[in-house]
Each structure stands twice: as C-alpha cells, then as structure tokens.
C-alpha cells in the first residue's frame, strides 16, 4: 500500500492537451509556438470541483440507455443537487447504484432499465451524488471491463 501514499496528489495533476488553431497537414512543418492558443485542461473539464468530486466505476448494463456502458468511469459530485433527468448515484439496499433522477408532480423517482422505478421522499441519505461526467479508455475496452469487486459485506 506504500506506493499509493506517494501517489496521493497534493494538487490535481494537470494533464493538458495543446490546441492548435490551424489544421496540421502531413508533410508540412509543425506550426510554430506562436500558433498555440491555449491549453485544454481535461481534468478541469471532467472534474470541476476537486474537493467534492469522487471517481467511481459503473459495472452494470442498466444505464446503457442513458449512455453509460459497463466499465465506464463516473465522476460523481456530492455537492451538486440533481435536477430532472440528472444521472445520479443512489444508495439502494446498501449498495451504490446508478439511476436517472426524475421528478414528477412533486414526487421523485429513480429509474433504470433493469429495475422498477423507486420512489424517494427525501433525497438526503439516499442520493449519494450527481454524476457530472463519464469516460472510458477505448484502447482498453476489450480488456475485461468489470473490475474485481471489493466487498466487505461478507466479513
């Protein structure tokens, strides 16, 4: 476990991709540094708030209709309140589940393709956070995308 301690970032790692405002053509020299306009910060794009965002991983197929494949990484912001049709992570039967949040006539429903919609009264305690982005590495997509499940309920 020691090796991970070192990896704990003090500051979020800022990996950046340079954006050129001219097309790069084969055979031509690279545009000079003058053309570099600004840097896209992928981290900031996906994780707007370092303090309240947590990374999780989806494993089920029930959210495919909402654009989330098994194996996708989810950025879950705990500080963001969900609005109608937000994708949220909810606590259901002691586990974390990805659901679509729908409010209708003053009632809130958590929906997914595989299970019956659940009606929730107060969102506190049951809604863990709002999913604000999801991503996957496509070059690794053929690898088994369901990670080893660490479960402590069996102890």
């Amino acid at each position: 476990m020691g090796k991970y301690e070192q990896n704990l970032p003090e500051q979020p790692s800022k990996r950046t991709v340079k954006l050129y405002n001219e097309g790069v053509m084969c055979g031509f020299p690279l545009p000079s540094a003058d053309y570099v306009q600004e840097n896209i910060n992928v981290h900031e794009l996906l994780v707007p708030n370092d303090v309240s965002c947590f990374i999780m991983r989806a494993v089920s197929i029930s959210m495919i209709y909402a654009g989330i494949l098994p194996g996708d990484y989810l950025i879950v912001d705990m500080s963001k309140k969900p609005c109608n049709h937000s994708i949220v992570v909810a606590v259901v039967d002691g586990g974390l589940c990805c659901k679509v949040y729908r409010s209708e006539k003053g009632r809130v429903w958590l929906e997914s393709a595989e299970a019956k919609p659940i009606c929730v009264t107060g969102w506190e305690g049951q809604i863990w956070g709002t999913v604000i982005s999801s991503f996957r590495r496509v070059d690794r997509y053929l690898e088994p995308c369901v990670p080893i499940v660490h479960s402590h309920s069996a102890i």
């Binding site: 476990m1 990896n7 947590f54 990374i55 991983r57 989806a58 586990g95 974390l96 990670p147």
Partner: peptide, 13 residues
C-alpha cells in the same frame, strides 16, 4: 484505496 488507485474505485451497479 477508493480514492488513490483507479483499479479500486467504488463500484456502481
């Protein structure tokens, strides 16, 4: 190591 290792992040069903 939920927050430190990408292979150990919490699983969402």
């Amino acid at each position: 190591l939920y927050l430190a290792d990408i292979d150990q992040v919490p699983i969402v069903y």
